[in-house]
Amino acid sequence: MNAPANEPAAGAPALAVSDLSHAFGKAKALDGVSFSVPAGRFAALLGQNGAGKTTLFSLITRLYNNRSGSIRVYGADVRQQPSVALAQMGVVFQQRTLDLDLSVVQNLSYHAALHGIAPGVARPRIAEALARAGLDDKARQKIRTLSGGQIRRVEIARALIHRPRLLLLDEPTVGLDIGSRQDILDHARLLCREEGIGLLWATHLIDEIADGDQVIILHRGRVLADGTVEDVVRQSGADNLRDAFTRMTGPTGPRTAGGGKP
């Protein structure tokens, strides 16, 4: 089901995770996780709360280090070439990470500086990113004054400032109303389609996943399925993704609501 692992670096997948395990003390958070996301693909990482999605994100972004298994971003190993790998990825964490008392532009400039981008290069990119996100008129406003949906859009704009080719979003629609949720989903799909960005979208909401998306089902730290929505549904013998998910994880699957949230 995985994309071929031995592709030459030029055509290497945006993200290739192979045999990744991770434990907190004795509790295994991830167990032999393997999957890959090609460039230009919208891949949904579907799992309940506590399935290990955030742990996986922390490993990919090198907040934690992986000790077994490997993570490659366009062929660059996160552990061996962290700078190369990190430069290729844009991240929107589940937790909001903008400085509430600084303005939109100040936050984005800070991010650009952290990526070593000269102010002269960053300025037009920031203006362009804000225009694309429909936030031009908010540029000088403090983050504190924005709505939840606007903050998320700023975070996505920020994640794109350094022109990454892999975008990671950890439950980016949590706490947003239906309209903002759809806006952000549409925006993310557009990025995959038009910019060829590989995108990993972690979620526990099945209705955020559309036909044709790649879906990776993560349950208790293990990958139960990986493929297009159609393939996964067919394999499980269910009628739709919701049923397929329920069949795989079991109706009595753990509902550790709130578990695993930082």
Binding site: T61, L86, M89, T97, D99, L114
Partner: peptide, 14 residues
């Protein structure tokens, strides 16, 4: 705690 440390730590610089 607020998460903005993550912004710093995912910079590609050492």
């Amino acid at each position: 705690e607020m998460g903005s440390m993550k912004t710093l730590l995912i910079s590609p610089l050492p």
